[in-house]
Design a protein around this nucleic acid. Sequence first.
DNA 1: CAGTGGTCTAGACCACACT
DNA 2: GTGTGGTCTAGACCACTGC
Lengths: 271, 271
Amino acid sequence: MNTPPDLAAPGLPAGPSDAPTGVGAVTPIPTPAFSPLYQQIKALILQSLQAGEWKPGDLIPSELELAARYKVSQGTVRKAIDELAADNLLVRRQGKGTFVATHSEAHVQYRFLRLRPDEGTLDSEGPAQRQIIACRRLRPPADITAALGLRGGEAVVQVSRVLSFAGVPTIAEDLWLPGNAFKGLTLETLAQHQGPMYALFETQFGVRMVRAEEKVKAVAADAATAERLQVPEGSPLLSVERIAYTYNDVPMELRRGLYRTDSHHYRNDLN
Amino acid sequence: MNTPPDLAAPGLPAGPSDAPTGVGAVTPIPTPAFSPLYQQIKALILQSLQAGEWKPGDLIPSELELAARYKVSQGTVRKAIDELAADNLLVRRQGKGTFVATHSEAHVQYRFLRLRPDEGTLDSEGPAQRQIIACRRLRPPADITAALGLRGGEAVVQVSRVLSFAGVPTIAEDLWLPGNAFKGLTLETLAQHQGPMYALFETQFGVRMVRAEEKVKAVAADAATAERLQVPEGSPLLSVERIAYTYNDVPMELRRGLYRTDSHHYRNDLN
DNA sequence: CAGTGGTCTAGACCACACT
DNA sequence: GTGTGGTCTAGACCACTGC
């Protein structure tokens, strides 16, 4: 009883689907892989997001409109949207509608940054000062190629920067981006831009970071980093390696940061 | 229209609630705080969990039974259970029922441990070797008292231990527990016990850890820790301070660990 | 006021586990 | 087969937003 009314094929469903609840034609084999209707709707919405039909910050069609479009009940669309909202891909706002999530909004800025001051809040330090040190195109070493899953000899853009909080240089990081998707990225663009880098990626390159994985270690500061962060060489620093993904688990950024943790910490909530 | 049929008071609802959907008597003030029915059901289930009516690993009543007990529809109970399952307080198993979550099951063991080997999986190293170094009762210093929110001069139990993976001592940690809740905890109990410590807490002390917060820093190894972890003094180590909570956000454990990260890392998924 | 998401209900049927 | 959770529908009403 899988693949109910028409929805198996990508694109809009059509045809006289009168018996929506898992009826349809007699399936010769009781397909072992069962995928509920709302999962298929979820996949369709995901496709629209990925294709750019609805961009970050956009209002998407109402539940009733989507229900009509996909020929399912409002409840089924609701469950699909619920899951997408739980994954932070959509944001629901009662009375207004459902919006595509974005890194550009004040209250969700720096969603992936886990560094917090030991005392006070992020806000109490004011906004971070950012200093872009370099931005260049290069042929990536093997580890970068592997981490980003690049084919052939695709170039990457490497960005180096330092973030300071309350005037103290605290984060030194390098990041690598696939060269094809980030063609026009320059030091000037980065330097002029205000707000989170991921917001820039959305507006300028149509790349929305959806989730990320981080590997954290403790390391000793090398000479170059010690200089950048104004700490003695050999000081313990937090090494944070992040891979950030767009829709469909496609890796789009590798980031290697070194954090001073003398007056900050990396915060994590375990559920 | 808040506090619908009877459910405001703790305990079982009763009385002739014929108009379940937010009707009831005329509320003189349009109570600004609105709490949907399923949230109230959720709170009632939470009370039963907290009171020990259903213990970790237990099968709780079916959705239909709970719906009858609380005089609401199955769908409302379902939504309440959905949220509790999302919080890892309950575990749903199709065809079998809904169970109280526990730290005793193989596939959820070490739920709060984020350390992973750089190569391979946790399993590939085999189980951790645990060495309990000390377990004693003491009057806590001020920082411990504050972190655990202890009243008056309540004593604490302090445990020190070392965890080794594949024979390499990797984690040295101390943990502090409220003395009243963990009265009979001894070094012998800990040494004899197999499996996660949080499982022991459930079975022996009726304390279930529900969530935790961690603050991670990079520090240099002091002499004592260097000895325990067999690294040079001054080596960079990951400092992990954890506060673990039971039901209702009551802190029940403070843990301070130092992790070697030469062949392991602290893994975190950002959504 | 109309339109949106949010809650609640009632009933039907499906997938899964155990007996 | 029986009982459990899981899906889907249809309809009603509530809460919030903005015209």
